[in-house]
């Protein structure tokens, strides 16, 4: 909508009056357009989770498929339901799993924090840069995302190895005499996660910071706020939506990360994604892998809901502003 006084936008944007074009598609057309992607997502996204849930209550057996059926006809008469909590007891009984969960949360949390500490000033710097180079800088943030994730993680192996580039460099300038043990430790995992997910932190931060009216800061300074205080009192609170989104986008996938701990972490770097992978591919214990997945989901439900709530709010806001 262009400016002008007409009160139309408010009336027009009323939730019930969305898109006349589609409302008039007719019930058949509209229904079909909804049905196709809806059906796809139900079949290949939602239903699979229910199956994971179901199989997590089954028992491991050797065979195809490698789990016992949950519901069975006995003598063609009785419907027998066998729910086994064996996988869950196993899960919570074994310290290894509990430790893996907490370690995953810890690693994800710390990495998210570092990504925020590095990403925020970068996003701020880009948002405040000259318009002419802003897009170029943004492109530079996104570019690694278009190259391979696997290769970017792989790149760190050569750098962090005992006889790798970082150690060679540090020894060459004389900071250390012996190579530091970085690869195959948790530190390498932190570095890997921050590196791989940094663009996901920067982009939402940038988009809130860029939208922010610079005159707000100027007004704060005009009213006697020192720049640093103006930042704390104006910029930071206003960028909270970006911080939340960025942190969610890093934290949630980081909890379940597999490639990074597998390639950069050591044998003792326990992360839940790795455990699930091992249960499934090495032990072929599908019920256990499913139980691990269900437990991981439970941990992630709160942050995922937070994220979706945020998405919904952004959507509503975008609609309001037209």
């Amino acid at each position: 909508m262009l400016g002008g006084g007409g009160g139309a936008p408010k009336e027009r944007r009323h939730p019930n009056s969305a898109g006349a074009a589609t409302r008039r598609l007719g019930v058949g057309g509209r229904g079909l357009v909804i049905a196709i992607p809806y059906f796809w997502l139900l079949l290949f996204f939602l239903a699979p989770f229910l199956i994971v849930m179901k199989i997590s209550f089954a028992e491991f057996q050797v065979g195809v498929p490698p789990y016992t059926p949950l519901v069975e006809w006995v003598d063609d008469q009785y419907l027998q339901v066998r729910m086994s909590f064996a996988s869950y007891f196993y899960l919570f009984g074994d310290e290894l799993y509990v430790a893996a969960y907490f370690n995953s949360l810890k690693i994800a949390f710390v990495s998210t924090l570092f990504a925020l500490l590095l990403g925020y000033p970068m996003a701020y710097g880009i948002a405040r840069a000259d318009k002419s180079i802003r897009n170029l800088l943004l492109l530079a943030v996104v570019l690694p995302f278009w190259t391979s994730f696997l290769i970017r993680v792989y790149a760190w192996i050569g750098i962090l190895k005992n006889n790798g580039l970082l150690n060679n460099f540090l020894m060459w300038i004389g900071v250390i005499n012996e190579p530091l043990e970085i690869l195959n430790t948790e530190i390498a995992v932190y570095i890997g996660i921050v590196y791989a997910y940094l663009p996901f932190m920067i982009l939402p931060l940038y988009s809130t910071l860029e939208k922010m009216d610079m005159s707000l800061l100027e007004a704060a300074m005009d009213l006697g706020c020192r720049p640093w205080k103006a930042f704390l009192k104006v910029t930071l609170p206003l960028s909270v939506p970006g911080i939340v989104a960025g942190c969610m986008l890093v934290f949630i996938p980081a909890v379940g990360e597999f490639v990074i701990p597998d390639l950069l972490g050591g044998a003792d770097t326990l992360m839940i994604g790795k455990v699930l992978w091992a249960e499934f591919f090495n032990n072929r214990d599908w019920p256990a892998a499913s139980a691990v997945a269900v437990a991981m989901l439970v941990f992630l439900v709160v942050p995922i809901m937070l994220f979706q709530g945020y998405q919904a709010r952004q959507e509503a806001k975008a609609k309001e502003q037209g």
Partner: peptide, 25 residues
């Protein structure tokens, strides 16, 4: 609501979970 949930969830869901789920499906 369910639809928009199913749209955003795959983006944040750990891949080990979605991978396992779709395989079992």
């Amino acid at each position: 609501t369910l639809f928009s949930g199913m749209i955003t969830a795959p983006m944040v869901m750990p891949e080990v979970i979605t991978g396992l789920a779709i395989l079992l499906m």
